[in-house]
Design a protein around this nucleic acid. Structure first.
Lengths: 229, 229
DNA sequence: TCAAATCTTTACACACTTTTTAAGCGGTAT
DNA sequence: ATACCGCTTAAAAAGTGTGTAAAGATTTGA
């Protein structure tokens, strides 16, 4: 799903312009469609976060567009229509639209209602905290800390960054310069001395008596975290 | 959560009657409240599926009611208000309302918008609790106060906000800027100094002799509330 | 209007983190 | 052997972020 992308479906060029310029000035990305068929294919290919849908399209009726999209997606659909009758609203809402604004509409209100939809996306789309496990080592990225045999490790910021970097690339050898670039941002030759020191302390903190070899040196190249157990 | 229960908040008896009879004839269960305070406690005790909220209440402003409820629940809130200004709508929607209908409204449309909310509930459907418990600490979001070992804590508004923010993210590290953004709205570098001071006072108020470490510092990153006991 | 409470700012000491430096170790090639 | 090179490790030095107290500013409530 394209988190910031909004699909604008509107056949009237002037209204479409109003909406798109509004979106642009508020830092939204958007794609447009000016027909029902175009709307459906755009929704499928671009997978937008939100659809702004005019009901009065030249080819298909807007309600059918809603039905089509709802057959495979629950993406938020906000109807923006000139039809203000109750029956139109109810038809669209019951077809699966999430909101209904009648023209002429306030730009500020449209933006507010878009924010409502965005909020909804963020709430529902929460994934559980990603956790990395390798032998006795566990990293809880959301909690921002690492555990060794269940005990929380006391790591300094750089140590933690380093550990995460290695963990993200288990089994791969990371060159000195790659590591320093990722951890320090800019890489200048001399940070390699520091890197060595940090590796030493990390190793010390990781050696849990269980003598698991988490970090392996590759002479002249860099370091690697082994997949253990 | 009471799947079919709707909380109707409205101080005008005639409007309230209109809504409740409409709900009754459409086989919804409902409870009513005629004040902001009543609305908040009813929301907490009955845990309704949907809230229909009038903004013009005798005691508290409706937007504050939204804020209160949102401090612990994401239950759908549909504002039903006589205030039709853009600014009112935007304020309410940004505070956390999910929809906004202006009086006089069409009964059929109200029902349709309720159905939209119901559809949403079936999709997401995760339970929330109006009280948070972590070791000796208890927060009653509906009442807006915190207890330590059963004793009510004397917290200033910002301290309370901070504590709620941490509680909502137990076990997760929150960055300085995230916290300042959530608590102060706009985040500018210098608020971090204030943040430190508040953290200090919060910690002092939380240290119950029982030396539970609720708040943990993550150097260079931010803070985290630990799950204790 | 004043007093009390709350919030912000400032300054400083201190603990912790990071970098630097240097000594020791173990390979490898000359 | 010996000289070299890169790696580890320890310890000192430099640098930073954090906690705390106290004073100043702002808001709240009588």
């Amino acid at each position: 799903m394209n988190k910031d992308l909004i699909l604008v479906v509107e056949d009237d060029a002037s209204v479409r312009n109003l909406i798109t310029t509004t979106l642009k000035t508020n830092n939204y990305k958007y794609v447009t469609a000016d027909s029902g068929a175009g709307a459906i294919s755009a929704a499928a290919t671009h997978n937008p976060a939100i659809v702004l849908l005019d009901l009065g399209l030249p080819d298909i009726d807007g309600v059918q567009v809603i039905n089509q999209i709802r057959s495979w997606s629950s993406m938020p659909i906000v109807v923006v229509s000139a039809r203000g009758d109750d029956s139109d609203k109810i038809l669209a809402l019951d077809a699966g639209a999430d909101d209904y604004i009648t023209k002429p509409f306030s730009v500020a209100e449209l933006l507010a209602r878009i924010r409502v939809m965005q909020r909804r996306i963020n709430v529902s789309g929460q994934e559980e905290s990603p956790v990395f496990v390798n032998g006795a080592l566990t990293i809880d990225y959301a909690a921002g800390c690492a555990y060794l045999d269940g005990e929380e490790m006391r790591l300094t910021p750089i140590e933690y960054k380093l550990l995460c970097l290695l963990a993200h690339n288990v089994g791969k050898v990371l060159t000195h310069t790659y590591i320093t670039q990722k951890v320090w941002g800019s890489s200048w030759e001399n940070d390699i001395a520091s890197l060595r020191v940090f590796m030493a302390t990390l190793r010390k903190k990781l050696e849990n008596g269980s003598k698991q070899e988490f970090i392996q040196t590759h002479v002249g190249i860099g370091y690697r975290m082994n997949k253990v157990d």
